[in-house]
């Protein structure tokens, strides 16, 4: 323990956890988004196609949620012990919703007599899980009532007008990712439908992101100072500018029938910029207003012990994940490989 205390493992764990959470948001984001759109798709064959486009990958995507939770527990236990009980109900709702949508993948085929039930489970499960994650995000940005290392507020504190807006924001965001995925993976009528609904989700995302971007600095003077004080305002100006460019490109790609990758890539870009924006606003706090990453960190011996395995296993997992996406690349079609 004495030797390992010399090395500061917090930066590397921040990087691992930050990348892991972002990866989860992107990966489960698009399959949750497909689930959100699923209920709106008019015809059954297209619905089957949509669900088939995420069936091979969804549960690998969801596993990042476990790794994220475990990573937070292991690397920043103070944050884990404050944040998770503070968002008690959103987490419970998310877990229940994920259970239903998870088993729906299989049971809608295996338990055909109740397919309608499982289809509703898939659509509403995806919607609720996403909304709950958005509430968590909003509550996280606003911070928590704490005493020592404990959350001392009420389990209902996390439901604020702001967190409800971030909840809606994430629903539009995941729907945009899901639409981008469907544009990428499908053709013809379903692709056209996805473009159309992608644009609707896009407008929702823009309205919500704009609202959150104004609301946050108004609500949190510290965040306002970080963005609008000199010279930060100049140094950080690229963030909103690049976001605007990506937004324009995404809108344009959704409308251009020759663009297959554009909408999905654009949606990823928008998520990356939003993620970056939140990170800039909160750095270096992991429990906003209360604890920095370093204050919330676990013992160096703990971080070191887990790092050994993480550095070996995570790259292999990532490579294999990438390879499996490669195997299932290309358009989902009703006739080959999928039904």
């Amino acid at each position: 323990m004495a030797e390992s205390a010399v090395i500061d493992f917090v930066p590397v764990w921040t990087l691992i956890l930050g990348a892991g959470v972002f990866l989860y948001v992107l990966l489960d984001g698009f399959d949750l988004g497909v689930g959100i759109l699923f209920g709106l798709i008019p015809d059954a064959p297209s619905r089957n196609l949509a669900i088939n486009s995420v069936a091979p990958v969804w549960d690998g995507n969801e596993t990042w949620l476990i790794l994220g939770a475990m990573g937070l527990f292991a690397a920043f236990p103070v944050a884990f012990a404050i944040i998770i009980p503070a968002v008690y109900f959103p987490v419970a709702v998310m877990l229940l919703a994920l259970i239903f949508r998870g088993v729906a993948f299989e049971f809608r085929f295996r338990d055909a007599p109740h397919r309608t039930f499982w289809d509703y489970g898939f659509a509403y499960g995806s919607l609720l899980a996403t909304f709950a994650q958005g509430i968590v995000l909003g509550a996280f940005i606003q911070g928590f009532r704490t005493e020592g290392y404990a959350f001392t507020g009420s389990s209902l504190d996390c439901f604020t007008p702001f967190s409800i807006v971030t909840g809606i924001c994430l629903v539009f965001g995941y729907a945009l990712l899901g639409a981008g995925w469907l544009v990428l993976k499908t053709e013809g009528a379903l692709q056209a439908w996805a473009r159309q609904h992608g644009r609707r989700a896009f407008l929702g995302v823009c309205a919500a992101v704009l609202l959150v971007s104004i609301w946050t600095p108004v609500m949190e003077p510290d965040i306002a100072r970080r963005w609008f004080s000199w010279p930060n305002i100049l140094l950080l100006a690229p963030v909103p500018i690049v976001t605007l460019v990506i937004a324009w490109a995404t809108w344009e790609a959704l409308g251009r029938t020759t663009s297959h990758w554009g909408p999905f890539t654009g949606a990823i870009g928008l998520f990356a910029m939003s993620y970056l924006g939140i990170a800039i606003s909160l750095w270096p706090m992991i429990v906003p207003h209360r604890f920095t990453l370093w204050q919330a960190a676990s013992a160096p011996a703990t971080q070191a012990f887990l790092l050994v395995g993480a550095l070996v296993l995570l790259p292999i997992i990532l490579m294999y994940t990438g390879w499996s996406y490669w195997v299932f690349r290309g358009k989902v079609r009703a006739d080959i490989g999928y039904h």
Binding site: T63, A74, P77, F80, A81, P85, S298, A310, L313, I317
Partner: peptide, 26 residues
């Protein structure tokens, strides 16, 4: 562990979290 047993989690995280995380990773 987080939602219902946060004080347990905080107290034991340094010792138990890598064991649980290794389970997840493996």
């Amino acid at each position: 562990f987080g939602t219902n047993w946060s004080r347990f989690s905080l107290a034991t995280a340094n010792v138990l979290s890598p064991l649980l995380a290794y389970e997840g990773l493996v």
